[in-house]
Design a protein around this nucleic acid. Structure first.
Ligand SMILES: [Zn+2]
Ligand SMILES: [Zn+2]
Ligand SMILES: [Zn+2]
Ligand SMILES: [Zn+2]
Lengths: 139, 139
DNA sequence: TAAAAACTATAAAGTTACTATAAGGTCAAG
DNA sequence: CTTGACCTTATAGTAACTTTATAGTTTTTA
């Protein structure tokens, strides 16, 4: 199978496959006489796993760690659980900070009906009054 | 005021200030005889506004647009409201996709107690069974 | 007074997970 | 024999910074 077919199978771009290869998430494929990459079922499964990990929001390095576990299948799987637990915490903390943001934003938003001029806009005034404890930037 | 003092006042790094300057979010400061940047109250206010915008999750380009409105204060402020409305939509759609992720992840997670070996880990099996319609990547 | 610490400057590279562009080689069809 | 679809590599761009390197300046301290 060539790179275009593999990409179509998984609904991703060929560059993405090359990118994963460079990042070590996909084993080096054989090359045909003309230099084209040749993929097997094994590559397909490996790449599908990467796509699935991305679909549940795992980072590429988290995905890589899971692959390592898959490659050493006789160790206890508690490490897998830990990784997923930590990832769930990532997601949850993102959710709560976004929810906080949304509250603050809707409160700011409702103060203005959009009928005034910018100079008197209560939204801009409220933004000016925000006391960012320290410029948070991780959202 | 020098760059370090300004950074301390707002709890950010000096490089971040230079970065904002390069991005056009902060007017060019005067320079003292030795080339050091010299900031005034005006710069402080401008930078504080940027930090506040970042604190409510606005991107730098959204922040820039708000600055443009501030600089032309005699137009109607409905554009401000629209920008904030759109930004709230950004936040809300991020929240819902993260909540979807969290559901999927907790369902995957609860299937394993971490007592098995990797080869039999139901988490890895469930990840393998995910049918990513197309590898989503915007989360 | 001289060395050390602290601050400033610029420029370039690293981060994440790709996407886009450029410039070119290969292959089948018409 | 050229067009189009496919493949190759390398490089740059995205967001919002952070890190590193290299160097000049000021302040503190021994
Ligand atoms: Zn994670
Ligand atoms: Zn308004
Ligand atoms: Zn936004
Ligand atoms: Zn398990």
């Amino acid at each position: 199978m060539r790179i275009g077919q593999l990409a179509d199978l998984l609904g991703i771009q060929t560059q993405t496959i090359r990118f994963y290869e460079k990042k070590g998430l996909l084993p080096l494929p054989a090359r045909s006489y003309n230099g084209y990459r040749v993929y097997t079922e094994k590559h397909y499964k490996r790449l599908k796993f990467v796509c699935s990990c991305r679909a549940i929001g795992l980072s590429l390095s988290e995905t890589r760690r899971l692959q390592d576990y898959q490659d050493n299948p006789h160790q206890p799987c508690s490490a897998v659980n830990t990784l997923i637990d930590e990832h769930i915490m990532h997601i949850r903390s993102q959710i709560t900070s976004l929810q906080d943001l949304e509250k603050q934003l809707t409160s700011i938003r409702t103060s203005c009906t959009g009928q005034s001029k910018v100079i008197a806009c209560t939204i801009l005034n409220k933004i000016d009054e925000i006391e960012s404890v320290s410029c948070n930037r991780d959202v």
